[in-house]
Simulated assay, not measured.
Amino acid sequence: MTFFRAIACVALLGLTTPAIAQGTKVAFGAIQQDTSAPVEVSADELSVDQATGAAIFTGNVIIGQGAMRLSAARVLVIYRQDSQGIQRLEATGGVTLVSGPDAAESQRADYDIDDGVIVMTGDVLMTQGQSALSADRMTVNLDDGTARMQGRVKTILQTGNN
């Protein structure tokens, strides 16, 4: 059980009011993300495909941009065709995204740098303080600090008595 799933389980124990929906919009992150900020990547290994110019980072990959941090086992970096910066990132394997006090984990995350959008898929779990939401998919808009949860969304609402 991962760290965030363990926190979510503890936060959800003892609460009795489930809320299930097919899609919902929530805030994500304490601040708006500067999508024009430099992207810093660290990993155990890097390989570059000379034909496509794509870079593959593997092993303990950590990506930082401003106050946002994304970690995964593997990240594919796809550069713009004009070689002027990163077009998108594709992260797989135990993906964790942290922005301010909020955190989310999933099996995969695709980050479109120009649009400032991260799409997380596969057993998505988002934690905000003591609250947690799960879904099949979460789309995070970094420009306005919102997230949309879709596909079997589930949360347990705090009643204020706990």
Rank of each mutant, 00 (worst) to 15 (best):
T2E: 14
R5D: 14
R5C: 06
R5Q: 13
R5N: 11
A6D: 13
I7G: 04
A8R: 03
L13N: 11
G14H: 10
L15W: 11
L15M: 12
L15P: 00
T16S: 13
T17C: 11
A19E: 15
A19M: 13
I20V: 13
I20E: 15
Q22F: 02
G23W: 12
V26C: 05
A27L: 07
F28L: 00
G29W: 01
A30I: 00
A30S: 10
I31E: 15
I31T: 15
Q32Y: 13
Q32T: 12
D34T: 06
T35E: 04
S36N: 11
S36G: 09
A37Y: 10
A37C: 08
V39G: 03
V39K: 03
V41S: 02
S42R: 15
S42V: 10
E45C: 03
E45N: 14
L46G: 07
L46V: 13
Q50K: 11
Q50R: 12
T52D: 00
T52S: 09
T52L: 00
G53M: 07
A54L: 10
A54T: 07
A54Y: 01
V61A: 05
I62V: 13
I62Y: 11
I62C: 01
G66R: 08
R69W: 09
R69Y: 08
L70Q: 02
S71Q: 14
V77T: 06
I78K: 06
R80S: 05
Q81I: 02
D82Y: 02
D82S: 06
G85V: 02
G85D: 01
G85P: 02
I86F: 01
I86Y: 01
Q87H: 10
R88D: 04
E90G: 05
E90T: 05
E90L: 09
A91T: 02
A91Q: 04
G93L: 08
G93K: 14
V98H: 08
V98Q: 14
S99I: 01
G100T: 06
D102M: 01
A104E: 01
A104I: 01
S106D: 07
Q107N: 13
Q107T: 14
R108A: 08
A109P: 09
A109V: 09
D110P: 05
D112Y: 12
I113Y: 05
I113V: 12
I113R: 13
D115A: 12
D115S: 12
V117L: 09
I118R: 01
V119T: 11
T121D: 11
T121K: 07
G122I: 07
G122E: 05
G122N: 06
D123Q: 15
D123H: 10
V124S: 07
L125R: 04
L125M: 08
T127Q: 05
T127R: 03
S131I: 00
A132N: 05
A135G: 11
A135W: 02
A135T: 05
D136Y: 00
R137H: 09
M138E: 03
M138C: 10
V140G: 05
D143T: 15
D144Q: 10
D144K: 13
D144N: 15
A147H: 03
M149N: 06
Q150I: 12
G151H: 07
G151R: 07
R152P: 12
R152E: 12
V153I: 08
K154T: 07
K154P: 00
L157K: 02
Q158F: 11
T159C: 08
T159P: 13
N162R: 14
N162I: 11
